[in-house]
Design a protein around this nucleic acid. Structure first.
Lengths: 140, 140
DNA sequence: GTTGTAAATGCAAGTGCTTGCATTTATATT
DNA sequence: AATATAAATGCAAGCACTTGCATTTACAAC
């Protein structure tokens, strides 16, 4: 069902041009089975279409973020990773000491999201958050 | 009391060298009355000590973060700002649309912090968080 | 199928920050 | 005060990402 890329369909329907570069960036994200970095997307695309520019990759990612078709997460610090928005929102606990990544269910952040809306009329964008800290083993 | 810089005292007591560059970075942060960027610190220091290098500023900030003497916040996206840790932890709601910044009390994040500790044994570092989203006026 | 045009791309330079390595220097020891 | 040395700095290059601008191109209208 996700076969020939429903992100591409959505882009087309909203009037964005379906350039080969764009389509290849989109399919790299859709076919990656976990979080993929811009550099990884770029090298996949370059392999089949040698004259793409990395700035096109970044601009496409920017567009997909704006349209809420992908989410980004800063797991490493200094290199962001991307994920199709419809493959589920989840969050990550990242240990600053050992680098361990613990997956976190979306529901844990709902109370916070509600409180921000209630008390500050603020619609928080908490899809795919990375919370940094210390895991069991590393926390003193 | 904050006069001759208690951050400097703490650095000295922990065995770190009190170089002029370091002292000037520290005092720039202590004397700034809100969040200050690395670039701003650098230009203050350069004015009085022309041959400092920006990498020294960044390395000092790195050290101060590690020792929990300053906290950093990404208010803009692409430029981080620094703040003495003892001037209070607070958080910010940043509107992605209009750029408005709403200050947020620390207490709002305590339930989340507690839940992460209880359910995942994870000590979250939530001092000075920036939560992005849409403010009242911009949220549809 | 041609043509026109705004949208998207490529390129090159720029930004904020980091890093490896050789040199300098704050501090402890004499 | 002079010396030794590990820590800190300066420099230059690198990294991830962004941006301005000239060129190309997907798509709509003929």
């Amino acid at each position: 069902m996700n076969q020939s890329g429903h992100i591409a369909d959505l882009l087309g329907k909203q009037g964005y041009r379906l350039t080969p570069q764009r389509l290849m960036v989109v399919s790299a994200i859709e076919n990656s089975d976990d979080h993929i970095s811009a550099e990884e997307i770029y090298s996949q695309v370059v392999a089949r279409y040698p004259n793409v520019n990395i700035s096109t990759v970044y601009r496409t990612l920017e567009l997909l973020k704006r349209l809420s078709l992908v989410t980004e997460t800063d797991l490493e610090g200094g290199r962001v990773r991307y994920h199709p928005a419809d493959k589920g929102h989840h969050h990550h606990l990242v240990c600053q000491e050992c680098g361990a990544i613990i997956d976190l269910d979306e529901s844990l952040l709902e109370p916070l999201q509600d409180a921000l809306l209630r008390e500050h009329n603020f619609i928080a964008d908490l899809r795919h958050l990375a919370i940094h800290g210390r895991c069991v083993r590393c926390g003193r």
